[in-house]
Simulated assay, not measured.
Amino acid sequence: MRRVPDNARSRAAQAAVALMLAAACATEAPERPDDTPRPAETPDRGDPPAVLEEPVDVATDLEVPWGIDFLPDGSALVTERDSTRVVRVGPGGEVTEVGTVDAAVPRGEGGLLGLAVHPDFPDEPAVYVYATAADDNRILRMPYAEDTGLGDPEVVLDGIPKAVVHNGGRIAFGPDGLLYAATGDAAEPRTAQDTDSLAGKILRMTPEGRVPDGNPFDNLVYSYGHRNVQGLAWDGEGRMFATEFGADAYDEVNVIEPGGNYGWPEVEGIGGDDRFIEPVVVWTPAEASPSGAAIAGDALWVAALRGERLWRVPLTGDAEDPVGEPEALYVERYGRLRSVAAHPDGEELWVGTSDRDGRGSPAPGDDRILRVPAPG
């Protein structure tokens, strides 16, 4: 792992950082991409890190929890990728099924993926999900009430390319009240550079799925050149951070700019090409395969699948050099980590494991949601 400082954006410094990365990895075994199964192994339940208190279970015995978003009462709605259920997890850990999404067709990395609660809930009692359907990935909107659960879905956006792998799937409302969606290249890398395609992009839309004012290409595309984004988060200044799976070499954290080209498939990691925006953090896939992201306590928190750890990336507040040196927490203690959401009280994170996704080694009680303190 290397943080990419601002001065590394010159070609000379980029080359130096790339050489350091290559040297650090030269004696390691070849890395598997994020879409290659990991051999089964016994989860390591080592000592907890000293910097945070011990996590505690909020809920257990879930089936690949993928999307987490909170309701005003402090409970959360959670999607299960392979069961296609949406469950409500109360603050005390009680789990109640509130509905299923019949349009979702689980296969490989697809199924029932991201979830976002309307920012004006309960005045706008709507819940959004990103689902891999029979022919495409799509975003659905459903009414929700505690006493009746989820209502009938309506399609907000369809036609997002799907595949067994690289479906993206994270959705979130930004500070502007608009809905953002992360899509994958659906195993067709060339589509990521096509701004007329919905694949390999971060999309920006109104809550009704329309093109908002200010989108750079007069369509839903907000940024492009992405391989498989699965984490979206905003800091207090409105800067948008995204986590992205690389292929064989480097995973990324990017600061997203409207109209920005992030390089895939021409570049993976640090490219040294002025046509593309450089990442602010790069990791090898063995350290990360980064999925969910959240901002809490002046840090970006990133859930790592293959890396089996929670990354804490300090935020500097400096637009020119926005992150400090990342810190790895809970390494190989809870297996694959898929989701991370900041609780509205600002004092904790809810972190979802992904050990029952066909690539992990489930322990008793998996999959689970953990409550993790989020210190400043």
Rank of each mutant, 00 (worst) to 15 (best):
M1W: 14
P5T: 10
A8T: 11
A8N: 04
A8E: 06
S10F: 06
R11L: 14
A13Y: 07
A13S: 13
Q14C: 15
A15Y: 07
A16F: 10
A22V: 03
P30H: 10
P30I: 13
E31M: 14
R32S: 15
D35W: 15
T36M: 14
A40K: 09
P43E: 06
D44H: 15
D47M: 12
T60W: 07
E63G: 07
V64L: 13
L71E: 05
L71R: 04
G74V: 09
G74N: 09
G74E: 10
G74I: 10
S75Q: 04
E80C: 02
R81W: 08
R85K: 13
G92K: 12
G93T: 14
V95R: 10
V98S: 07
D102P: 01
V105G: 06
V105W: 02
R107V: 12
G108E: 13
G108C: 12
L112F: 10
L113G: 02
V117W: 01
V117C: 09
P119W: 03
D120R: 11
D123S: 15
A126D: 07
T132G: 06
A133S: 07
A133V: 05
D135E: 15
G151L: 11
G151Y: 11
P153C: 12
L157P: 07
D158E: 15
G159S: 10
G159W: 12
G159F: 15
P161G: 11
V165I: 15
V165L: 12
F173R: 04
D176I: 07
D176C: 04
L178H: 00
A186L: 00
E188V: 08
A192H: 03
T195S: 10
D196Q: 13
P207L: 14
E208H: 10
P212F: 06
G214M: 11
N215E: 02
Y224E: 11
W234D: 01
E237P: 00
E244K: 00
D251T: 06
D251K: 04
E252S: 00
V255Q: 13
E257R: 08
P258H: 08
Y262Q: 00
G263F: 04
V267T: 03
G272N: 06
G272A: 05
D273N: 04
D274Q: 11
R275T: 14
I277W: 05
P279L: 08
V280Y: 00
V282E: 07
P285S: 07
A288Q: 01
G292N: 01
A293N: 01
D298K: 06
A303E: 01
W311P: 01
L315A: 06
G317R: 03
L329M: 03
V331K: 09
R333P: 02
V340S: 00
V340P: 02
A341C: 07
A342F: 02
L349F: 04
W350C: 04
V351N: 04
G352Q: 03
G352A: 14
G358F: 11
S361L: 00
G365N: 03
G365F: 01
R368F: 11
P375F: 12
G376N: 14
